[in-house]
Design a protein around this nucleic acid. Structure first.
Lengths: 236, 236
DNA sequence: TTCATCCTCCCCCGATCCGGTGAGGCAGGT
DNA sequence: ACCTGCCTCACCGGATCGGGGGAGGATGAA
């Protein structure tokens, strides 16, 4: 099994396109002998599915209903670093139970285990194993395969980023002053405060802010800050 | 070796405080038989060092000079997902060579291998192995230990987050409308545009924005957006 | 039921920001 | 030597934001 997994990971690492990736996911699913294996990146405009074994019907419903905005799995992974077992989540909300119920109605297993993965530019994705099993069986499975899953999640995401994210950072770097300006803006300071902090005139400060806006192709200051933050050009 | 590593990772996973973490790092360093092993999180206010085996002198210099803003290792890892070998980086810049030279002068090895790690709320950290070795020896080392290092990096960060980040999300969740508003603001839309998009009056929109500001303790709209983005309450 | 929260709408006005344009000095690379 | 990019300063008018009010209805939790 260990060698088989290595083979699958290697195959994953060489996937030339999304079809390969998808095939690798199916291979992993079979190797683990679980119901479903899912990799998908999460974006504000809606879940952007990557490679998965879910039935298309479920994916359609999930996307159409914007379930990713209320799905406890997504929300919890978003806020944390550790993988989460679905059964440890809070399913008390009405919408949460709806999501779960609909999922099971579409053929999902009752057990799930999801790993958050984060990449550059604020990228966020989930790697999920789904199965039909009892609590103890499932607990043993996730515990014994944790490291495998961590690595698999990492490699899948690496591949997906390489394939999908063709538009690698134009790396229109900001100048030091521009970085300072955006950083302080992100901290909620006003222009006059920032100018004082940086010991420059407010007029000068505005030149930096506008420079940053143009470099980032931002529509306004807030956009520029959000962009810089997401691209990792500044941090809080 | 494999079992020894497992033991070390387990010990890591149980570290009760920073001292334990630091001790684990030293253990790993010895297990790998490399010069230095470093875990540190990167923040805008300066590098916040975690657990490391670097000589204190080098850390002081690095921090005082704000090297993390020009260090090619940090910049490259920040923009990418894959681990990077130092020798594949661009050291042509003047400041870059300064950083490298100073580091070696302080006792660092000539070879380095750094893995980016990302956590919630825009957290970013580096896990670095440093050694004195020839290119081929080093290449074999990094290649054969890649998976180990990925896992080690993950566990160290998990532990560091658990220890240091005591202030777990107050999870002052935003209402759906507030989320919508901030998301569109982050996309650079103006209030009037957003109101039109959401099909509500601009007055109503302002109520949401102000509500979000207050919940997030933000000083202004830009601050609120930056906050929400960093906390993972919205994404681009 | 009652309370809390959310969604929706409306008023006003001062403070702040935006966008365009201009210009001079100083460093770095070709 | 030249050009490019960065840092610094300046003006102006219109658009936008910020903060302070108040009000009604729907929904879900205790």
């Amino acid at each position: 099994m260990a060698r088989k997994l290595d083979d699958l990971l290697n195959r994953l690492a060489c996937a030339a396109d999304l079809k390969d990736l998808q095939a690798s996911i199916f291979g992993l699913r079979d190797a683990y002998d679980v119901e479903h294996l899912v990799y998908h990146s999460v974006k504000s405009n809606g879940a952007q599915w990557g490679a998965l074994t879910y039935p298309p019907g479920w994916v359609d419903v999930y996307t159409a209903q914007r379930f990713q905005t209320v799905d406890p799995v997504v929300l919890s992974c978003f806020q944390g670093f550790r993988p989460v077992d679905w059964k440890h989540l809070d399913w008390s909300g009405r919408v949460a139970r709806t999501v779960l119920g609909e999922g099971i109605a579409h053929g999902l297993g009752n057990q799930g285990f999801s790993l958050p993965i984060r990449g550059p530019s604020g990228q966020f994705a989930l790697f999920t194993v789904n199965h039909r099993a009892g609590d103890d069986t499932w607990g043993r499975f996730t515990k014994s395969h944790l490291n495998d899953l961590l690595l698999a999640a990492h490699y899948v995401n690496e591949r997906a980023l390489a394939l999908e994210g063709v538009e690698l950072q134009p790396r229109q770097a900001l100048s030091p002053r521009e970085t300072d300006a955006l950083t302080l803006l992100a901290a909620g300071r006003s222009r006059s405060q920032i100018a004082e902090t940086l010991k420059i005139s407010e007029h000068t400060l505005r030149v930096y802010i506008e420079g940053a806006r143009h470099k980032l192709g931002a529509l306004n200051t807030t956009h520029a800050v959000a962009n810089a933050l997401a691209r990792g050009l500044i941090c809080l």
